[in-house]
Design a binder for these strands. Structure first.
Lengths: 356, 356
DNA sequence: TTGTACGCGTTATCAG
DNA sequence: CTGATAACGCGTACAA
């Protein structure tokens, strides 16, 4: 491996001072055209590029933002990351990715790594909410002293940083209303946990909406499960196995589209026809939603836009003094075929149901 | 924003020299237990962490690998990246992601950014092969002078770097043989391009295999298309529309699973029943393959293992002198239901076919 | 317009 | 065992 050519090498060979080389590189106009050309020629000849490390050390900043999330290979997170990446790049800033994996909590290792790297800002997304509230606030405060901090978080989390909040309310309301409008009364929720400690609060939000519409909140209609396809398969099987067919829900809202994928597979395996025998609504509006059979109706939380806002605010906060505030991007429902909406309004399970 | 506390601050407050602070941080045993404790206390009190920029400047290396690819939000690439990330992390190395987007060529900007950041190694994956061979070699050579270079590339590409080659041969052979065994004779290929300039050479590899088995290579059986679901939908429609039903293929191999998704959707829309009326084989063995209807048979190129090998070799090359060589990870066929293999062997399209 | 000299935060070398 | 001090590569006052 060759030694990297430095600004000294260029200066010496061009017969000028390092200051002049810098000026040429930074396109400082206070250089005579003659020397500029001379220096530029040497630079080109050696393909000289200033060292970022040295520049950062000098300037005290890294022109880099950190994005901390569990896994990029997750569909939701890679959309989020991708958006953050390009938004930062548009502003001449690079992005460093830190994965925490299943390690739900925000680890001290990550915090110190962020500090070590002198990041210009950090965006947290996903799963850190399960961290003990005290620890979390301590960590954020510690980081906040040195760099602006932003998070993409559930709406009910109050943190001392830039909070881009997921639209929990509509994420639950939209699917429930849609199903209600189509005549469904018995609606189940599968995936994640109904307990309030669940990362996203999606389950609890769902229950709220049921209550608002005076719909039955049958405990049999939600079994705790994971966040992937296998979880969906198992959960729906467990739920339906324990129920008389007359008590079956006519619709299922899932934690996310992956769970929905599993649910649909299991349902078909049981011989049900979708959406006739069961309506399904997923969440995240993933790329494959239009290609399931039937095409999956889903809620879009617009992670891309949230990520873009976060990056923009981070960049802003870097200049001005840091501030803490919250903003929300409305969720939207993307209606496809998995609820039979295209077939017109119908009345599911009305006959067996006791009107309350 | 507070000023970061430096090694000087610690040294002063602890009443020792910076050298001693470094020793404590690096756990150098040549420190008396007494001073060690004294210094450590100050370090903890201020949550001091050495600056990576300064360390890198000093040491002349970054302890970071670069991964260059088109987009992480692509399923194939995020699996690849994720594997590289954790393999590097296991070796105390961080990973920096560079996306080139649709920008197929390896741009001078990326090259100079890699140089600027003084990366300890770089892994290229995907799409740079379409770069003019001369330019590509020039870029790789330039980089190679300063850091080890690895690529995940088609097997027929000869480059002066560490080449982790995709198993082109089996990627084409496995699906064609499988279909042949099941009795299929008219096999089409959809997605990408059949032209040899296509990034992955998947189309040309497919044609080779057809010839080997003496199967008809009807030009109508492959229309150039893209790499996503929409491309699949359009391509299959275009192909079948132009053909008498008697001349229809009985099986379709697609460039990847995304294309397969589109093809399956379009086929169903046309009223065909899968796999009875048409067998499908995708490529990449994506997570959703087991959840399509019918479950999609697919080729796995094992991008994770390729990425891990690449990272390992990069780390090795960093120590010893750089070397250039090639290695291949065999592709495997994951058989599910989209070819009807679970239904036993059958003879598709035998009757209409003219035996040659 | 150009050059000198210092600081940025660490580590390594060499004395003590 | 501990402390000066010289790099590391760059930018930037300040001076010429």
């Amino acid at each position: 491996m060759d030694r990297k050519v430095t600004i000294y090498d260029i200066a010496r060979e061009a017969g000028v001072s390092t200051a002049t080389v810098t000026r040429v590189v930074r396109k400082d106009p206070h250089v005579s055209e003659k020397t500029r050309q001379k220096v530029q020629r040497v630079i080109d000849a050696h393909a000289y590029t200033p060292s970022v490390s040295a520049q950062n050390l000098e300037g005290g900043r890294s022109r880099a933002l950190a994005v901390v999330l569990p896994v990029v290979s997750n569909l939701y997170f890679n959309r989020l990351f991708d958006a953050a990446y390009w938004e930062a790049e548009k502003n001449g800033c690079s992005v460093r990715l830190f994965q925490t994996r299943e390690n739900q909590a925000i680890s001290p290792e990550v915090v110190s790594e962020l500090l070590r790297c002198r990041m210009d800002g950090v965006l947290f997304a996903g799963s850190i909410w399960s961290t003990d509230r005290g620890d979390l606030n301590a960590a954020l405060e510690k980081l906040g002293k040195y760099m602006p901090v932003a998070t993409i978080c559930p709406a009910d989390v109050e943190l001392d940083c830039i909070c881009i909040q997921s639209d929990l309310i509509n994420c639950a309301r939209l699917p429930v209303r849609h199903l209600h409008t189509l005549g469904h009364r018995r609606i189940a929720f599968l995936g994640g946990s109904m307990h309030s400690k669940d990362v996203s609060r999606r389950g609890t939000g769902f229950l709220d909406q049921l209550r608002r519409l005076d719909l039955p909140d049958d405990p049999a209609y939600h079994v705790d499960a994971g966040y992937d396809m296998e979880s969906g398969e198992r959960a729906v099987l467990r739920m339906l196995s324990g129920l008389d067919r007359a008590r079956w829900p006519s619709a299922i809202v899932t934690f996310n589209d992956l769970v929905a994928l599993g649910v649909m597979k299991q349902l078909k395996k049981m011989g049900l026809s979708l959406p006739r025998d069961m309506a399904i609504i997923g969440c995240d509006n993933q790329f494959f939603c239009a290609y399931t059979d039937p095409a999956l109706t889903s809620v879009d939380l617009h992670p891309e836009e949230m990520a873009q806002s976060a990056v923009r605010e981070l960049l802003l906060a870097r200049e001005s003094s840091a501030r803490s505030f919250a903003m929300v991007r409305d969720a939207t429902l993307v209606i496809r075929e998995s609820c039979g909406a295209h077939l017109g309004r119908r009345g599911f399970g009305q006959t067996e149901e006791s009107r309350t």
